[in-house]
Computed example of a mutant assay.
Amino acid sequence: MVKKTLFIVLLGIGMTALVGNEASARICVAKVGGYCVVWSGSIECGISATGVGNVLQDPVTLACTATGTDQWAVACGNSGSNTWTSPGINLVTFSGIVSGEYQLTIYDVDRNGRAYGYAVAKPSDSLLTAIVDAGACPNLNWTAIDAVPCTMQVRDMQLDAADCITSDAYYNCTLPSCGTLNWDTNTQMFERRQYECTQTGTNTYKIPICPPLP
Rank of each mutant, 00 (worst) to 15 (best):
L181M: 15
E191A: 06
Q199A: 00
L175P: 03
K122P: 11
A121Y: 02
D160A: 03
D146F: 01
A130Y: 06
C178S: 05
W183L: 09
V132A: 09
T200S: 04
A147W: 08
C164Y: 07
C197G: 04
S126M: 05
Q199V: 04
L159Y: 09
A121I: 05
E196L: 09
A130E: 14
T129P: 02
T187F: 04
D125P: 01
M152P: 14
Q194Y: 13
T180W: 00
T166K: 08
P176D: 00
M152F: 15
T143V: 14
C178Y: 00
V154R: 14
A136Q: 13
G179E: 10
A130M: 10
S126F: 06
N186G: 15
E196G: 05
A121V: 04
E196Y: 09
S126C: 07
A144P: 10
T166M: 14
R155H: 07
Y171W: 15
V120P: 01
T200N: 00
C164D: 14
R193L: 03
V120R: 01
T185C: 08
A161G: 10
S126V: 13
R192L: 07
S167I: 08
T202C: 00
A147H: 04
I131Q: 08
A130P: 09
A136Y: 12
A161Y: 10
D125T: 03
E191N: 08
L175M: 03
T129I: 02
T129R: 03
N186A: 15
C178I: 02
Q199Y: 01
